[in-house]
Design a binder for these strands. Structure first.
Ligand SMILES: [Zn+2]
Ligand SMILES: [Zn+2]
Ligand SMILES: [Zn+2]
Ligand SMILES: [Zn+2]
Lengths: 155, 155
DNA sequence: AAGTGTTATGTTATCACATAACATAAGTAA
DNA sequence: TTACTTATGTTATGTGATAACATAACACTT
């Protein structure tokens, strides 16, 4: 594994999640924590039933509502994102501050990269103000080919 | 009905759709046309099974694949958009030119408004270039409260 | 400690959305 | 007509999400 590997990053994210939840009086219970671990450990987004299969290793009695309840909590806390285009979930790479959900989804390799474009946020924000629209959540999802795939693959 | 009513607009969109398809050698069959009509006549996005129920009035034998096939065609032709956050579909208000899907979704009144922000498109485009990402489709979906609802309703 | 309200979890069943697979029909062009 | 392609009919199933109600764990007061 390369340096800055997922395992290390996961631990950091989990510690951060614990601190954030504690500071907010939110309870990161073992089940919720396990779902977050599963998502952080995965390089790709996972569907709810993928999560369920993995969660059963630690919680054999887990059923769909188990997963969806944990996801609901984690989404509220800003610890995971839902990828609407994929009906799938990913751990957030910087859960310490609220931000729009911006994702690049490669249709070839399946990689999903979270973008953090401040300029996109700003531009979208001013467009919303111009409409008088009060946003609760902003979703930007771009599907296409990532740099690596477009360099190596066929056009 | 107010001037510029839906009925009038629908007719215009349908005529435009016919011209576009004809120019492309694409076949806007009666079934496909009826699905487009249903979507254009609806002020709100419709789920596939909502469309199915309405389509059955004209095509009693319609079944889920009937609707999904028509939607696939209409999406390819850029005549409708899919709202990922809602698993629902809307007719496009300007199908004559390709464009990113930008929607404002009001959580109170359910209104869905298609945005046409060139600045958002530009900013997103430059962010994508900076990443070397070749986009096939760009989705922007903002959920919140529309101007009307935030003016009248409770905060 | 006991009581009480609240939050989290367990459990069953069902709903909602989407597609696979294969058969038939309708259009298109030799 | 023939052969080919595209569109539709039909059955079944796959995939994602939630309703509804019961039980358990926690937090807070008395
Ligand atoms: Zn994030
Ligand atoms: Zn890729
Ligand atoms: Zn449009
Ligand atoms: Zn509204």
């Amino acid at each position: 594994m390369k340096p800055g590997s997922c395992h290390t990053e996961c631990q950091q994210v989990l510690h951060l999640a614990e601190r954030l939840c504690e500071g907010r009086g939110a309870r990161l219970t073992p089940q919720r924590r396990q779902v977050l671990e599963i998502l952080c450990a995965s390089p790709k987004p996972l569907g709810a039933y993928d999560i369920l299969d993995l969660l059963k290793q630690g919680v054999p009695a887990a059923k769909p509502p188990t997963v969806y309840r944990a996801l609901e909590f984690l989404l509220q806390q800003g610890l995971v994102h839902r990828i609407e285009s994929l009906n799938a979930y990913v751990g957030c790479i910087h859960p310490d501050h609220p931000h729009a959900s911006q994702f690049l989804i490669c249709r070839d390799c399946g990689e999903v990269r979270e973008l953090e474009s401040r300029s996109v946020e700003r531009t979208l924000g001013s467009a919303l103000r111009a409409c008088g629209f009060k946003a609760d959540s902003r979703v930007v999802e771009v599907t296409g080919r990532c740099l690596r795939c477009s360099e190596q693959g066929t056009p």
